[in-house]
């Protein structure tokens, strides 16, 4: 333990209202902590710069899954275990359930939250490509009220988001319109469990008459932020999946990403693997092979 608990302040207000009031009083000062799977790691390593923390763990307002007619609203405080155990999420959002099952071991899935994963904004976070593929929207709350924003451009740069300093994510909204889509997701980590991704792909697709009607391809760990491969999606739109298209899609996908060399992998490896997996997705889409 490289931090001194006496140097830190932690409070646990009883409800969301009190929490946003606190955030508003001293904007940017209070760091929300949910299940602690990121914050406590930094803390133990002596690297947590925030000195004031506010617990949002297990807050009823943040820990519910609401199934509406055209969307499912997931409270930001839902854990990965909550997601894995929810029947609707399991049926309609397999990309998200797979991502939840890849996140840490069971103990971390019992504590890590979807909202925490979004706010922590690691480009390597496994659930974020899934949220991009499902075109998630976020409901942000503050003392000023609430606003609904698309998740697509929520991450502005490495570990930076559009969340204002007095705001909290309350819900992650997933449209139910993709439930009939073909799903593909793959995580490439250094090992089978408890691995930080080197590359993570989540994709949805639909064919019509042998041609691509609609696809969503999102990738993690290959840019400062999780990315939708919009250009690749555009290129394959309306086309039949054949070898020349696979080659083109690979090329475009590799051009869209900005991977780096780091402690976990190399730029060259990540680029090639993203290309391979985009091609694998398209091939499986063509064959309509269950990929999850």
């Amino acid at each position: 333990m490289r931090s001194d608990p006496a140097d830190y302040e932690l409070v646990a207000p009883a409800n969301l209202q009190e929490i946003v009031a606190l955030l508003a009083e001293e904007p940017g000062t209070w760091l929300p902590i949910a299940g602690g799977t990121d914050v406590m790691v930094q803390y133990a390593a002596g690297k947590l710069s925030a000195r004031k923390l506010v617990s949002i763990w297990n807050l009823p307002e943040l820990r519910h899954i609401e199934v509406l007619a055209d969307e499912v609203r997931i409270g930001a405080g839902c854990t990965y275990t909550d997601l894995r155990e929810n029947e609707t999420v399991g049926r309609e959002f397999p990309l998200l359930v797979s991502a939840a099952s890849w996140t840490g071991g069971i103990a971390n899935q019992n504590r890590g939250t979807l909202g925490g994963n979004v706010v922590n904004a690691s480009p390597a976070a496994d659930s974020l490509p899934a949220l991009l593929a499902y075109e998630a929207e976020l409901i942000l709350v503050s003392i000023r009220g609430e606003r609904r924003v698309p998740y697509l451009d929520f991450h502005t740069d490495y570990k930076k988001t559009k969340l204002a300093s007095d705001e909290l994510i309350r819900d992650i909204c997933l449209s139910r319109r993709f439930s009939e889509y073909f799903s593909y997701t793959r995580k490439v980590g250094a090992r089978q469990a408890q691995a930080i991704s080197k590359v993570c792909v989540a994709a949805l697709g639909r064919l019509d008459g042998g041609k691509v009607k609609d696809v969503r391809i999102a990738v993690g760990s290959v840019a400062p932020v999780p990315l939708r491969l919009l250009e690749t999606e555009r290129i394959v739109q309306g086309k039949a999946i054949e070898p020349s298209l696979l080659l083109l899609a690979k090329k475009i996908a590799v051009a869209e990403i900005r991977p780096i060399d780091d402690i976990r992998s190399t730029m060259r490896y990540r680029s090639t693997v993203v290309g391979n997996l985009v091609a694998e997705f398209l091939e499986k889409l063509r064959a309509n092979e269950p990929a999850i």
Binding site: I33, T37, M40
Partner: peptide, 8 residues
């Protein structure tokens, strides 16, 4: 199940 090192 939780990792008690990550629970304040």
């Amino acid at each position: 199940l939780v990792n008690s090192c990550l629970v304040p």
